Simulated assay, not measured.
Amino acid sequence: MTTGFDLTLDCADATLLADFWKTALGYVDEPPPAPFATREEWLASFGPPEDEEEDDGAWLCSPDGTGPRLSILKVREAKTAKNRLHIDVRVPGHGSPAERWARIVAKADRLVRAGGTILEEFDGHHIVMADPEGNEFCVAAAPR
């Protein structure tokens, strides 16, 4: 039996990163867990500190329930080092190497418009990028 897992990103601006990663992955805001009607109601059940704001976190999931959930949580400390784990955004579709590369480039261009930065291109294979807060990830073709 396998064990499920979620990915969590620490951040300075949860709303900014949530919007970016929804664009990157096609994810949506995850509904609150039962029996709560709203995410705010769920958060209130933990008795959060007075200085915590509603936009201090975001919870995302794939619309079809595949893939790990993504939690994006605001933290006080700044990012100080390169991530030791990164996300690979896999662009679907088959075809020739040139067609796959064109889809990778198009996805990277879309993510630049959403606030990402291209760090390095490995022509024909993958593109290393950073999200709006500097978290590195790769854009590559889906495995065949």
Rank of each mutant, 00 (worst) to 15 (best):
1 M>Q: 08
1 M>V: 12
4 G>H: 14
5 F>A: 05
5 F>K: 04
5 F>C: 06
7 L>I: 08
9 L>R: 05
12 A>Y: 01
12 A>G: 10
13 D>R: 09
13 D>L: 05
16 L>I: 02
18 A>W: 10
19 D>E: 15
21 W>G: 06
21 W>E: 00
25 L>N: 06
27 Y>D: 02
27 Y>N: 05
28 V>Y: 01
29 D>L: 07
30 E>Y: 09
30 E>A: 12
30 E>C: 09
31 P>C: 11
31 P>Y: 09
31 P>S: 11
32 P>T: 04
34 A>Q: 05
34 A>N: 01
35 P>V: 01
35 P>K: 01
35 P>Y: 00
37 A>H: 00
38 T>P: 01
39 R>V: 15
39 R>Y: 14
41 E>G: 05
46 F>K: 03
47 G>Y: 13
47 G>N: 07
49 P>D: 15
52 E>L: 02
53 E>C: 02
55 D>V: 06
55 D>H: 11
56 D>K: 04
56 D>N: 09
57 G>K: 11
57 G>L: 12
58 A>W: 11
58 A>R: 15
59 W>K: 07
60 L>E: 02
61 C>S: 08
62 S>D: 05
63 P>H: 04
63 P>F: 06
64 D>N: 15
66 T>D: 14
68 P>S: 06
68 P>Y: 08
71 S>A: 10
72 I>Y: 10
73 L>T: 12
74 K>F: 02
74 K>G: 01
75 V>P: 05
76 R>N: 02
77 E>L: 10
78 A>L: 01
78 A>I: 01
79 K>P: 00
79 K>E: 01
80 T>P: 02
80 T>M: 11
82 K>D: 04
82 K>S: 01
82 K>I: 02
85 L>M: 05
87 I>E: 04
88 D>C: 07
89 V>W: 11
89 V>K: 10
90 R>W: 13
91 V>H: 09
91 V>S: 10
92 P>E: 10
92 P>I: 03
93 G>P: 15
96 S>D: 07
99 E>S: 03
100 R>V: 13
100 R>H: 14
101 W>K: 11
104 I>Y: 03
105 V>C: 11
105 V>F: 01
109 D>W: 04
110 R>W: 06
111 L>R: 07
112 V>F: 08
113 R>I: 08
114 A>H: 13
114 A>V: 08
118 I>R: 14
119 L>S: 09
120 E>A: 13
121 E>L: 04
123 D>K: 07
124 G>A: 03
125 H>Q: 15
126 H>A: 12
128 V>S: 03
128 V>N: 06
130 A>N: 02
131 D>L: 03
132 P>R: 03
133 E>I: 07
135 N>M: 08
135 N>V: 06
135 N>T: 10
138 C>R: 01
138 C>H: 04
139 V>I: 11
140 A>Q: 10
140 A>I: 03
140 A>E: 00
141 A>I: 00
142 A>R: 13
142 A>L: 09
143 P>R: 07
144 R>P: 08
144 R>M: 06
144 R>Y: 08
144 R>E: 13
